[in-house]
Amino acid sequence: MGKYIIKKLILLIITLLITSFVIFLIFELVPGDPAVDKLGTRATPEAVEALRVKWGLDKPFILRYFQFVTSVFTLDFGVSYTYGISVSNLLKEKMVINLFLSVMSLMIVVVVSFPLGVYVAKHTGGLIDKIMIPLNQTAMSIPSFVLGLLITFLFGMVFKLFRPGGYVSYKADFGGFLYFLIFPAVALAIPKIAMCIRLLRGNILEEADKDYSLTAYARGNNTTGLLYRHVLKNAVMPTITFIGMIAADMICSGIVIEQVFSIPGLGQMLISSISTRDFPVVEAEVLMIALFIMVISFITDVIHAILDPRVRI
C-alpha cells in the first residue's frame, strides 16, 4: 500500500512536470511580444527592452520554465503584465472560491448519489426506481448554467433563501460565503448526481449477477447482506473513477456558473487575462487547475487501492 502511494505520487510529479512544460511552451510559442503589446508599436526599442528585462523575458527559456515549475511550491508566479501586481495576490481569492465551489459540489455528488444509487438498485423496478429513470435522464441533459438560472429564480427570487448576485467574500464572513456557494454547487452537482446514480445502479446490478453473488446467496445471505458484504465494494469502484473524472469538468462548468451567480471566481479572470495576453496570470491559472485535477485523481487512485487488493501492487 505504501509503495503504491509512493508510485502514484511520483507519477503525479511526472504528470505535473509534463503538463507544466506543455502549458509554458504553448505561451512561449504564441506569436508576438508581450512587452510590445503593452507599450504599443510606437514605443522606443529601449523602453521595450527595459520592460522585457523587468519581466524577466530576457532570461533563457529553460531558466524561466524552471522558475515556473517551482512556483507551484513557492506560489510565486511573477507579476501580472496588466495589473503590475503579483499574480498570487491577484488569484488567491479566486482560487479559494473555485476550490471551495468544486470540492463542495463533489461532496454533494457523493453524499446524494451513493445512498440513492444503492436504494434504486436494491429496489429495482419499484416506484422510486421508475420515477428516477426519467428524472435522471432529464437531469443529465440540462446544462448546469440553465440549472443555475433555475435555482437563482426558484431559491433566490421565489423562496428568498439567498440574495441573487449577493456573493459574500470568505474574508468578510466565512459561513455566509459557504452558504452562498451551496446554490451554485448544487447547480453543478445535479447532472453529475444523475450520472453517478445511473452508473452505480448499473454496476450494483451487474455485480449482483456475478458468480460470487450466487455463492454468497448459497451460504444463506439475504439481499441486504449480499449488498453490503459483497457487492458494494466491487460496484463503487467505477463510480469513484468517474467522480475523479468529473473533477475536471467541475472546474470548466464552474467557470460558466460563476457568471450566472456573479461570483468573482477564476472564470472572469481567465477570460480577461487571455484577451489581454497576461501570460503569467493565464499560466498560473491553468497550472493550478491542472494541479487540482491531478490531486483529485490521485485521491481516487488511493481510494481504489484501499477497496481493491488487486490494484495495490
Partner: peptide, 13 residues
C-alpha cells in the same frame, strides 16, 4: 461448490 473457483470468490474479500 461452483465450477469456477476464481469467479465464485469475491475478489475484494
Amino acid at each position: 461448490v461452483f465450477q469456477d473457483p476464481l469467479n465464485s470468490m469475491n475478489p475484494v474479500l
